[in-house]
Design a protein around this nucleic acid. Structure first.
Length: 927
DNA sequence: CCTCAAGGCCAT
DNA sequence: ATGGCCTTGAGG
């Protein structure tokens, strides 16, 4: 039981109790502590081949080169698993540093350079990222580590062993903290001293000799080629460190559990904190479960009791923890010293210190006037919205500047000339790029071979890359970022200037600029096929652009009939085009089902109703069924390859630990042998599986607030109520997870990740389904025929309910206007989802399947295991639907295509942070 | 055959 | 990790 995770001793889910750490540690260090210990534990435990191999067979390019970078890098698997043919170029074998706590290693050295002076001396002229401009005083490694901590992406989850389960497989995340050789290495080819790589017009000049040393084989460059160093680095994360936060602040002595509790609810800015808390709660519970199965159902897992509201909030560093889309990123920044109560609404100080004020209470409850997410408080500077790369890789393209994405493909007269865009494009971000740089105007003399300027860094451009004119560096940077789904973080304010000299200082801002300037994600090929011209729309479009530009320079408007841009719809839902990303299992199903049920039009009516209220919120089903990623490449999952794994002890193990699940494993094995999608799911198995899900769902308990009367008592403390609700949500969701029949099939970490990613969708789905199924008694007058009048009436009803509840909770009236302004959109969206479900007459059996499917749908990082389980419930749902509603051949599809709407509503819930709203609505149903 | 925008390689 | 240089390969 080496992965005991003794640092986590949460008594129950609600409290993130980290008793093993000194109470003065802040959240950040606690979490870090946890991760580090966890990793050490893992390295000790990884006696099997995979983990060790993962460490020892890494490409030499991933070897740490020099220490001191304030970046905690996370190494991931090589996307292409071929071993690197080359030999290590760095003779220093630093592998002994791997698998150890970098913090321990680095903390002992006086200065990074003292260990590897040659590394320091080899710094290139061009500063690499992460290198503070004034790096005279090296940052303490420990301090540096706490600047940014990015936990591994799901992609980094490796099969191995799960010590705390005593099984032979683990999904343990192994963050490899390495010194970043990119920081101090001498690289710096972009210092200008090298020969410009500007492509001369005559290709023959460049085509000389060079029998490429390593590979030689032309085919080697193709997809089957070796795993070059460039491709070997997985999706890590890094950050720039233009600014270093001050030294860690010592916190006043506060009992750690109270501190943690308070910091979650009162300090974190909204959902991120909530996620983290959820995460920790899940981890705690899971560990409890793993350690003591017998107690899991009784003492250890009691619902959270009421807690005393935290005392005075301490001025701790602001920690932005958590994740939203795929990767957890933690940023530690020192808050402004002056106690400026930023309007960046949060549970922050207002919750604890101002709860006596009715105004602030309202503020807390309604989370009024919150600034855009991610905007650093105190910055009045105008710049583009923050780029959430996790969500970006999760397929949410809505945060991209849609106009610019389209602009990259749309050839309007004014903006189609990349040369001029460099100077003319009004981007809020990086407003002025070195004005001295010559802004080339193609105009009449475009045929003249003037050097092109990179639209990102103003280096010498080599042509059109991914949609815009860029240099080789930015081209490669963009390619690597997209290919590896890297997640960057800017520790400054996200407005770092990107020039040739400084482009490597902040990857986040560089990539952000790439996006803003119109580089096209979809142009990075998923299949990595070199050469040629994509026959896809993306390539054709800017091929046209380039050619037309060269030939006529006339303003032209190429119709962007680009299906691939359909993801820019603002909803961030499943239908968001994944571009280069392979469709998820869910999407495949939706597509397949769509093909079978194309004629089905039935819910356009309801969509129209919503559209009346929200123009621009496009119905998902209208798009997702027709879209395919730009490259039709789909990795064919080898089911057979996993059959052996299933046979190999899994069923036996399950039979011993969870006999009821054997039938499912059996089914899974069958699925592995022959594609389950085409097989009929036996009805009896279907019903059994569904009944299991229904039994473990506790629909009403999850969808409602039990103690609403207590919450409505405005005499009690508001923050307490909110804590209660939050505790309750975490508790219920975790309990539900642990009751799931496939709970034992997946490691705790995976469950944690799933719940962390999906909690808001699960809430919306549950509460909406509950309202759809049980709420009809209340509003008997509603015909549920999906008319606009129904929708309006439902929204009004819900708002009234909400108004009543919130007024009661706060003890002061809330106007409807205020309510509409702050939660109107969310309530409408949730109502829409509810009506959707009601319209299709959602059944309990279908709801439980959808819930599991929702939970298991991962944008792209889903493991095969997840997909298989999801597949199982897809088949289950389909089987049920086919049997229960044979007259509705399109029902299966109809149900699936509603999930993106759930996601969309959930996204609003996340933004509003008022996660209790759906519960209030449902509680009203009960009363 | 040429073009050129993909991806790969590999020294830094 | 970066970026200069190379190969690739569909399209013209």
């Amino acid at each position: 039981m080496c992965a005991k995770m003794s640092v986590l001793q949460g008594r129950h889910l609600g409290i993130m109790t980290l008793t093993s750490s000194p109470c003065e540690l802040d959240n950040m260090s606690l979490f870090q502590d946890l991760k580090l210990k966890r990793r050490k534990v893992d390295s000790r435990c990884s006696s099997d081949g995979e983990s060790a191999a993962d460490t020892s067979t890494s490409s030499p390019d991933n070897m740490p080169g020099s220490p001191g970078c304030p970046v905690v890098k996370v190494k991931t698997e090589c996307i292409r698993s071929s071993p690197s043919p080359g030999t290590p170029r760095d003779t220093r074998d630093l592998r002994d540093l791997r698998g150890t706590d970098t913090r321990e290693v680095t903390a002992d050295r006086a200065s990074p350079d003292s260990v590897f002076p040659e590394a320091a001396s080899s710094r290139g002229a061009e500063e690499r990222f992460c290198t503070p401009a004034a790096s005279a005083s090296p940052v303490s490694p420990l301090q540096s580590h706490t600047n940014v901590f990015t936990s591994p992406t799901p992609r980094e989850i490796h099969r191995g062993e799960t010590p705390d389960r005593g099984t032979n497989s683990h999904y343990l995340v192994q963050p490899k903290e390495e010194s970043d050789n990119s920081v101090f290495d001498g690289g710096g080819r972009g210092d200008g001293s090298s020969h410009p790589s500007h492509r001369t017009p005559s290709p023959s000049v460049n085509r000389i000799e060079s029998p490429s040393p390593g590979t030689g084989n032309p085919g080697g460059g193709g997809p089957a080629g070796g795993c070059g160093s460039g491709a070997s680095s997985g999706s890590g994360s890094s950050s720039c460190a233009n600014q270093q936060p001050g030294p860690r602040q010592r916190a006043p002595t506060v009992p750690s559990h109270i501190l943690a509790h308070h910091q979650f609810w009162s300090q974190n800015r909204g959902v991120q904190g909530y996620d983290t808390r959820l995460l920790n709660g899940v981890i705690s519970s899971a560990v409890n479960f793993g350690q003591n199965l017998s107690s899991a159902t009784d003492e250890g897992m009691k619902p959270p009791a009421q807690r005393v509201a935290p005392a005075t909030p301490r001025p701790a560093p602001s920690v932005i923890m958590g994740e939203v889309g795929g990767v957890r990123t933690m940023i530690w920044s020192v808050p402004p010293l002056e106690p400026t109560p930023t309007p960046t609404a949060s549970w922050t100080a207002t919750t604890a210190s101002s709860s006596t004020s009715e105004e602030s209470a309202a503020h807390v409850l309604l989370n009024l006037r919150s600034e855009p997410r991610g905007k650093p408080p105190g910055t009045s500077q105008s710049f583009g919205p923050p780029l959430n790369m996790e969500r970006l890789w999760a397929g949410d393209l809505s945060q991209l500047p849609a106009a610019q994405q389209i602009q990259a493909l749309n050839l309007t007269a004014s903006s189609s000339q990349p040369w001029s865009r460099n100077g003319n494009m009004v981007t809020t971000e990086a407003p002025s790029q070195t004005p001295s740089a010559p802004s080339l105007q193609p105009q009449e003399h475009e045929e003249e071979e003037q050097p092109m300027i990179c639209m990102i860094c103003e280096d010498k451009a080599t042509g059109l890359h991914y949609g815009i004119i860029t240099c080789e560096g930015c081209k490669g940077f963009f390619k690597r970022t997209v290919q590896n789904r890297r997640v960057y973080t800017c520790v400054a304010e996200g407005i770092c200037e990107i020039t040739k000299a400084q482009r490597n200082r902040c990857q986040y801002c560089r990539f952000k600029k790439c996006i803003e300037q119109g580089m096209v994600l979809q142009a990075v090929r998923e299949d990595r096929m070199p050469g040629g011209r994509n026959s896809g729309a993306v390539y054709n479009l800017y091929k046209v652009k380039y050619k037309k530009h060269k030939k006529t320079n006339k303003g032209m408007n190429v119709g962007v009939g680009l299906g691939g841009t359909g993801g820019i719809n603002g909803s961030g839902s499943l239908n968001a085009t994944k571009g280069t990303m392979a469709p998820t299992m869910l999407e495949k199903h939706i597509q397949a089902a769509a093909a079978a049920a194309q004629h089905n039009q039935q819910h356009g009516q309801l969509a129209g109703a919503l559209m009346q209220h929200h123009k621009g919120s496009s119905g998902p089903e209208s798009q997702n069924t027709s879209q395919q990623p730009a490259s039709g490449h789909q990795s064919v999952q080898g089911h057979q390859g996993h059959a052996g794994h299933l046979v190999n002890g899994t069923i036996l193990k399950t039979a011993l630990t969870n006999p009821s699940e054997v039938v499912h494993l059996r089914q899974r094995l069958d699925n592995a042998v022959s594609s389950s999608r085409d097989r009929a799911f036996p009805l009896d198995a279907t019903l059994a599986m569904i009944q299991t899900l229904i039994d473990c769902d506790e629909f009403q308990d999850i969808a409602t607030l039990r103690n609403l009367d207590e919450l409505l008592d405005h005499k009690s403390d508001l923050s307490e109520k909110l804590c209660q609700i939050g505790d309750s949500i975490v508790y219920k969701l975790v309990q539900w997870t642990k009751r799931l029949p496939f709970y034992l099939e997946l490691p705790v970490e995976v469950h944690t990740r799933l719940l962390t990613h999906k909690w808001h969708e699960l809430l919306v789905l549950t509460t909406s389904a509950y309202q759809a199924i049980h709420g009809q008694q209340k509003w008997t007058g509603v015909g549920s025929d999906g008319t606009s009048a129904d929708f309006t009436e439902e929204v009004s009803n819900n708002l009234c309910t909400l108004q009543t509840c919130l007024t009661s909770m706060m003890g002061r009236p809330i106007t409807m206007d205020q309510l509409r302004q702050d939660v109107g959109l969310m309530v409408e969206k949730i109502t829409y989802v509810t009506l959707m479900f009601r319209q299709v007459k959602l059944r309990m059996e279908e709801y439980v399947c959808l819930k599991v499917i929702t939970m298991l749908s991962q944008a792209r990082d889903g493991t095969l295991e997840l997909e298989q389980i999801q597949e199982r419930y897809m088949s289950c749902l389909r089987s049920f639907v086919e049997h229960s509603a044979p007259q509705q051949p399109g029902r299966f599809h109809d149900l699936l295509v509603r999930l993106p709407e759930v996601q969309s509503a959930a996204a609003l819930l996340l933004e509003s942070k008022m996660f209790y709203v759906p519960f209030l609505l449902n509680s009203a149903i009960q009363r």
